[in-house]
Structure formats: structure tokens, C-alpha cells
Design a binder for these strands. Structure first.
Lengths: 333, 333
DNA sequence: CTGTTAGCGCTTTCAG
DNA sequence: CTGAAAGCGCTAACAG
């Protein structure tokens, strides 16, 4: 294994000059740096992560914890989240990995924590009353939750401000004259927050349950006209399903947005524009949100465990009106 | 941060005794060990991964590289593979993480290799002529490919012995009297290996293309009778789709296995028994295969890069006959 | 702008 | 069975 000593010798400089040439943490003359880089190239030198972490006093690594990777239907959003974290963390000079945990098994989490390998943890895909949050909290690892869950105490998280999101969506629906709208989600029950905001707008809600798949959305489109004659609009929490719905709409005799006006609150901007220009969205830049989460994580780690830096933040989507949201009661041919 | 020095002081022993108590690499008296463990417990000591890796001379870490995590439809098999690797690697005292790589982007791969963070890499989800294999080979990182791809040179891999698998499946079909069978896969073209073995058995093949989803399989079932009247059997390479097919069969007027005899060659034993007892399988214990891959990886790392230990191996599935594979031309009510 | 050097926390000889 | 001590390769003072 070649070390900085080897390349120092070859370049005819000191070992620290090698380090600084590579890290850029202090000024190095162009000439010297080039000699160092040439030596690095020539010897195929690679830095040693463990040594750097040890000497630097910190593992420059953040760990994403996400179970169910292969069990739940994948969403473009999940990919964007991982991608965002990777780049946000990298931007701050750290690295990130996914720590695979078997479903519902705490032992994998404990192994990680016991290892002291990770400077911090980003918890993803949290479920109701997620036990992992308790474990992380107990072990005093710096952690941020991507999403929210009620575990009985406060913790740092990054998430969308859904209250604002729903307020935007429902007030738009209200303004357009809709009075009965479907809530497309994975559950039979409608989120209380949605109920509250709909009530404030005097809008009647109907639950539309679906799997978050293209076919799930298609299936809904097929029976939509018969099953829900009164529904003139849909607020969708399912990114993939609503694409399937819109794609199938025409062949099912549904005119979007004339017959059904749709606002997607959980879609990537990219998805909305590329596959379903008929959908208005309260846009969600999952990548940027996750990137900011990654940056925050690194800052929290560098700030040290003791410093109680408050890094909670909410992410608020912007309303993207493509003027495709139909007005109710007009032009009904 | 508490270190071994702290716990040595508290336990009244030397620092090396602490290390050995924890690693078990040399005999320690029961009494001493208990004092050490008590101190560890009391101070909440966690070992420092970076220091251990540095002193030990090796990063005790294996990296799984798998792109498309969130783009491709997930399969139970992928989960079983990850799980198997984690446990195979852990069994040998190493750890494993997933290194997220953006699709088709080499730079993430290069970052990892440059980091010298990983003792070895397990490449998953390889595509045709996968560039990552070239990169790994060039960087001289110990690596094993889970699956195979043609990149123009030899490398170590762990994969099923599909030639044996197909031989088993087709000779069984032949024995049962089938002469025309469908090949359920994601492609229009049929794998040349399958063609060769079918030809040897004088069996005519028809390509059945499907997405590997429950709904993909269902769709196929719906049109199967009309579209493929001559097909009496299916060899399936798609684990999820075939489950969908079998689930929908009855409601589509298909009697499995009387009308269509099925052998799944890419299913987990678990899937076959739990969801579709009518399917015979050339069983695939993805977990065990991956576990063995993980163990091999660690051994390769410990053997050192120079030692050209030959670790290639093939995994051969066992034929699981549930006596549900129908005989052609009999009992056709 | 560059060099010297003292550790980081652990593993592993070597010496009892 | 236990201790002492020499590093592992790097970072970050400190000293020019």
C-alpha cells in the first residue's frame, strides 16, 4: 500500500505538504501541488479512510437507515431522496452509505451504533412510533429523521410542511368551485390534517384508496365514473398511482382536467411535467429537500454532539399552476 | 468519548487486556473479563471503527454496489440477496453497507474506490458489459460480481448455474410430454442458453414478455388462452409476474397446472410455497447464495489482494417437485 | 508557502 | 493468563 510518505519522497516534499495539497486546507504553490499530484497519479495513491477518520477525530460518514428497500413499491421520490442526501453530504466533504436493516429487526441498528462507524444517521421511511428513533436517541448519535413520526419526544427532522401544502391545494379547489373531492392515498382513513383543512374550506372528502403503482391508478380510473359520480377533483398523495390514473383516464372516458381536476401534493416536479401535464402540483423537490437534510446532518456532526444546535426545519412546496385545473360548472359540454 | 484507556483504568487492567477481552483473541480469565465487560457497560463504551481498521491493517467493511435501487421494480430476490450478503459478511466479522450510485454514473464508483474505505466490493444488478466491472478491475479492489456479464475478461462471480437449472426444467417438461412451452421473461428475445437446451429436448419455445409485477402476470393470464392456445407449459424467469399469473389464472378460466404446467426457475422457495403451490420450481435460495458470496468476499479480503485465490463458484438449484406439474394429454376433461 | 511532529484509538507483537 | 509498547496512515497544531 502506498502512503503519503511514499508520495512525499517521490515528489520531494514533506508529508504534510502532501496532505495539504490534497485537501486544499492551506495554500500550496502551483508548482509543488503539481509535483504532488503527478506522484499521486504515478503511484496510484489512494487515501486511507480509516486513518483520516481517526486523525481527524470524526468519522466523515453519514449513514442512511432505510428498511423495506425491496419490499415496498419503489417510488421515484425515494430515489431522489437518497440521491439528494448523497450529494448534500458530499458537498460538505462527507460520504454516505445505506445501512441495510432487516425489516423490523433492531439488531442491525444496534450493530451500527455499537460500531461508532457513522458520524450521524439519517433515518428514512419512518413508521408510526418508530423504535429506531428511540434507539438513536438513547445512543446519543446525531440523527435527523427524514419525515415525521410520533415517538413521544422532540427530535430533528426535515419534512414538507404539509399543512401549508394542503392549505394551498384546498383553497385552490375551493376557488375553482369544487365541493367534493377525492383523497387518493394508501389508506382508508383520511389524514386528520387533511380533514381539518377541507372542513375549513367546506369541502366534502371521499377516500380513494389505491396501491401506489401505475396499475393501481389505472384500476381506479376504470371504475371512477360509476363509483364516484359526485367527485369533481382529486388531491393525490400517491405519485405513481396518479400517473397511472391520468394515463388511463382518456381510454376510460374521463377527461382530465375537465371531468376530474387533479392536484398532486406528493409528486416530483419532473414526474408531473413529463408524464401528466394535466396535473397541477404543489411541487415537491425531494432532491433539494434531501440535499438540505444531508448538509444539515454534516453540520450537526461537525458542531459536535454536545452543542444542541437546532436544525429542525420544514420544507414548503411551491404551488405550480399549469392552468390545467378545471373550473367546476362551466363548459360542461 | 470513552476509549479503551478509560475502561482499562476503571477495570484495573491493561489496555491490551481490554482489547482481548472484547475480541476473544486470547484467553482471558473469567473474572477479569467480567470486570472489563462491567466497565464497558458502565461507561457506555463503543469501539472506534476507524481506529480498529487502521490498527488492524484492513477496513473490515464490504460494500454492495447496486444501482437502480429505486427505479427497477423490486423483487423479493433483491432483498434476499442483500440480506444474505449482510449476514454472510457479518458471520466472518466484517460489516457491509450499500454504496448508492446514481444510475449510469461512474463518478460515485470512483469516489468509493478513491476512498480506500471498503475492503472489497460486491457488485450487484450487473448489466450487459457493465463498466463498473472494468473500474473495479483497474483499481485492483477485491471484488465479486453477483451475477454475470460479458466484459471481455475473467472475474470472480457467484451466480446460479442456469445451464443445469434449464436442463432440469426442460427434461422434466419433456418427460411429462410437453412440446411447446412459453418462456416468461422481460425480453422479447429468448436467452440462447434456453434455446439450446430446449432444442436438445425437441421443445418448441414461445416468448412471453411481461413486466415483473403482479399485474404484469395477471394481464398475461387474461389473454393467455386466446393468444397462446398451443402452449401447455411455462418456464418462468420472473418471480413476481408468475405469482400474479397463477393468482389470476382461475378467474381467467385457466386451470393450473392442468391447463398450464409451470416451472419457476427464478423464484425463492418461500414465494413458491406461500403464494403459488401450483408452481414447481427449480429452487433458488437467494439468501444462501448471497451469504456464501459474502463469506467468500471476506475471505478474499483477508487473503490479501496479491494472493490470487480462486473464489469463483456456481450455485446450483435443486429441483423441488411438488407433484403439481401436469402431464400433457391425460385427464383432459 | 513549507517542514516537523505529536497524537487519534486500536491491534498486535514481545516479554513476562 | 496479563502488561508494555510499537506502530497503522493521517491531520493539525506549531515552527519556521
Amino acid at each position: 500500500m502506498t502512503t503519503r510518505a511514499d508520495i512525499a519522497k517521490l515528489a520531494g516534499v514533506s508529508e504534510s505538504t502532501v496532505s495539504y495539497s490534497l485537501s486544499g486546507k492551506r495554500p500550496i504553490s502551483e508548482k509543488t501541488r503539481n509535483r504532488v499530484l503527478a506522484a499521486v497519479e504515478q503511484l496510484g495513491y489512494k487515501s486511507n479512510y480509516a486513518a483520516a477518520a481517526l486523525a481527524g477525530g470524526l468519522p466523515r460518514m453519514v449513514t442512511m437507515m432505510t428498511s423495506n428497500l425491496f419490499l415496498a413499491p419503489p417510488s421515484r421520490i425515494d430515489g431522489a431522496l437518497v440521491d439528494g442526501i448523497v450529494h448534500g453530504v458530499r458537498e460538505r466533504g462527507f460520504h454516505s452509505v445505506i445501512w441495510p436493516i432487516a425489516n423490523g429487526d433492531d439488531s442491525d441498528v444496534k450493530v451500527l451504533l455499537q460500531l461508532n462507524f457513522s458520524g450521524g444517521v439519517i433515518l428514512m421511511g419512518v413508521t408510526d412510533n418508530d423504535q429506531r428513533v428511540h434507539l438513536l436517541n438513547r445512543e446519543k448519535v446525531p440523527f435527523i429523521v427524514l419525515g415525521r413520526t410520533d415517538v413521544g419526544f422532540k427530535y430533528n427532522f426535515v419534512d414538507r410542511d404539509f399543512e401549508s401544502v394542503y392549505k394551498i391545494a384546498f383553497s385552490k379547489f375551493k376557488e375553482l368551485g369544487h365541493t367534493q373531492i377525492g383523497v387518493l392515498s394508501g389508506n382508508d382513513a383520511i389524514d386528520p390534517l387533511i380533514k381539518k383543512i377541507a372542513a375549513a374550506n367546506k369541502i366534502k372528502l371521499v377516500s380513494l384508496k389505491s396501491k401506489n403503482t401505475i396499475d393501481g391508478g389505472s384500476a381506479l380510473a376504470k371504475t371512477f365514473k360509476q363509483s364516484y359520480p359526485g367527485i369533481t377533483a382529486i388531491v393525490s398523495l400517491l405519485d405513481i398511482a396518479i400517473v397511472g390514473f391520468v394515463n388511463s383516464a382518456k381510454s376510460c372516458g374521463l377527461d382530465v382536467p375537465r371531468d376530474v381536476s387533479i392536484i398532486g401534493v406528493n409528486m416530483l416536479e419532473e414526474q408531473a411535467t413529463s408524464t401528466s401535464p394535466q396535473i397541477s402540483t404543489v411541487a415537491f423537490d425531494a432532491y433539494e429537500m434531501a440535499k438540505s437534510c444531508g448538509r444539515n446532518m454534516v453540520e450537526a456532526i461537525e458542531a459536535g454532539k454536545n452543542s444542541k444546535k437546532k436544525i429542525s426545519e420544514l420544507w414548503i412546496g411551491d404551488f405550480m399552476d399549469r392552468e390545467t385545473t378545471s373550473r367546476v360548472g362551466e363548459d360542461s359540454k
